[in-house]
Design a protein around this nucleic acid. Sequence first.
DNA 1: ATGGCAATGTTTCATTGA
Length: 258
Amino acid sequence: MKLVTWNVNSLNVRLPRLLDWLAANAPDVVCLQETKLEDAKFPVAALEAAGYASHYVGQKTYNGVAILVRHGLVATDIAAGVDGFVDEQKRLIAATVAGIRVISAYVPNGQSVDSDKYKYKLAWCAAVADHLREAIAAHPALAIAGDFNVAPDDRDVHDPALWAGQVLVSAPERAAFRAFLDVGLADSFRLFDQPPKTYSWWDYRMLAFPKNNGLRIDHVLLSAPLAARCTASRIDRNARKGEKPSDHAPAIVELRDP
DNA sequence: ATGGCAATGTTTCATTGA
């Protein structure tokens, strides 16, 4: 199974690129973030024509997550939101596909470490860690894939000195990320040797992409049974090139059959 | 082999993202 996560930064704008990418890469399951679409406007028909069923929860302007499932696979038990956390923001959706509980997550950005949005980010992450603890007990084969808005360590930061203490990199955010791992998940990217300076997000400004001034903030976390089946984990930097790219690149994981 | 913000709505700027 090929499992992907991609923050598309508006599915409305990115749909042509997404369709091209799906055709070129033939993933089985695709977790999307920042669709920025009300449910009534989700491009169900275009994705159906491309060979994918859509499961989604969205809102106008901000946030919005989805799970696309290739025709031939069946998705069951679709569930949106975080257990025990009342939230207007649409940031999490789950589905069971081929015996795997797949979660698409869009962790809050946090804006800056002294903002209310930062507090909300940490509270959201704490609630998700609790949610994951329950979910993994019910579904031992679990993958949570998404935009975590945390660079787990300095290898994931183009200029650690510049970013030290800033949002996306601060110690409490990294602790929140480790709390996800402590539930019994592995950062699939670090299961393998990786090219140095591999990132998943680059600012649109200041020539960040051509200079490779990026952060690795998009992750696929795997429970132990899935980590044991994982044969590859990489980031498709090419998807950040060209006309009207998302500022994020897709992360791709391959799982062999059990 | 890339390109100097982008997307959205409240639209002719403000807000948010990361």
